[in-house]
Design a protein around this nucleic acid. Structure first.
Lengths: 180, 180
DNA sequence: ACCTGAACACCGTTCAAGT
DNA sequence: ACCTGAACACCGTTCAAGT
């Protein structure tokens, strides 16, 4: 990549992160280009679709949680490990408003650039769940998909102004239900 | 209202219901006008904002659930009555994809035409919860807002293709958590 | 190679002009 | 009174033209 292109690429990512932090994942691509002081065509040259920009922005955070989950797999208390994962997932979505919608869309669409990261994320939670279930630390009538659904639901609540303040308490309700 | 205006009004509502059923609450107003065979200005004359059309379309269903909840308040088993209300709420949102987002937006915005209906809906659930709590049929560390949050989360899951198939099972997880 | 911005096909909403 | 559709200010995305 040419030096000027590299500079634009990096700057677009930086500005993109800023704008998404302010306005959520539905922020306008044109707005990103404008703020980056770059033609809209330049943005689309580097990121052929808005999902492509989002993907580059979000993958890091997703993979970090997956990595953290790997570490949790060998921790002592399997029930606590599971709840810690839940908490990290909610925190992840807290950092980027609306990200959970991107995640469920990516899971549903194998063609999405975020698909692999999301499937791994789900797998990391599923392994923690299985271990907790084997230890009698989690109810056995749910699986990894249900787990992701429950954490996604909490994340969604976090994005809804009338409910955001309740998420801490609701987290406990859900966490206790999972540990039953 | 003049006869021709009345006809347009009714037809717009009918077509609007159709389009929202097909495409969810994010459907295009222009599409509604086109299908109704009417100028876009005519739609905006009758419904000054997309929320106004949505409100007219949704209020009936909301108020029906509120009315049903009133009847449940005097039913025998307070715990079962609460779960029945939960089930009706999820069914309500099942009928119109995406309606739950309109509901939380309406709750957050007192200026919304749907605000009153939604607040009443929340109140109807809160009364059923209070009664169940008094009977020892529901956990006492949640209130009406938490209840609406949980049912909204289920409704949201119902709108997400990767999770929709799991909602029945997850409903039980949540319902049991509430009755604890 | 890379950048630019006009162009295309959309959107919600407004409003001057017609009946 | 009411209807119409061009107009405005947006959007995501594409692409011919420039450097």
């Amino acid at each position: 990549m040419r030096a000027d292109a590299r500079k634009n690429y990096d700057h677009l990512l930086e500005v993109g992160r800023e704008v998404i932090a302010e306005q959520g994942v539905d922020a306008s691509m044109r707005e990103v280009a404008r703020r980056a002081g770059v033609g809209i065509g330049t943005l689309y040259r580097h990121f052929p679709t808005r999902e492509a920009l989002l993907e580059t922005l979000l993958r890091g955070g997703f993979d970090a949680v997956t990595a953290a989950a790997r570490a949790l797999e060998t921790s002592a208390a399997s029930g606590d490990a599971l709840v810690t994962w839940l908490r990290e997932m909610v925190a992840l979505t807290y950092r980027h408003r609306g990200v959970i919608a991107s995640m469920t869309a990516a899971i549903a669409d194998p063609g999405s650039a975020l698909h692999a990261s999301c499937v791994e994320l789900r797998g990391s939670g599923a392994r923690l769940l299985t271990r907790a279930q084997a230890d009698g630390q989690a109810r056995t009538d749910i699986d990894g998909v249900d787990l992701l659904a429950l954490v996604s639901a909490l994340a969604w609540l976090n994005d809804q102004p009338p409910f955001a303040a309740r998420v801490d308490g609701l987290f406990d309700v859900i966490a206790r239900a999972i540990r039953s």
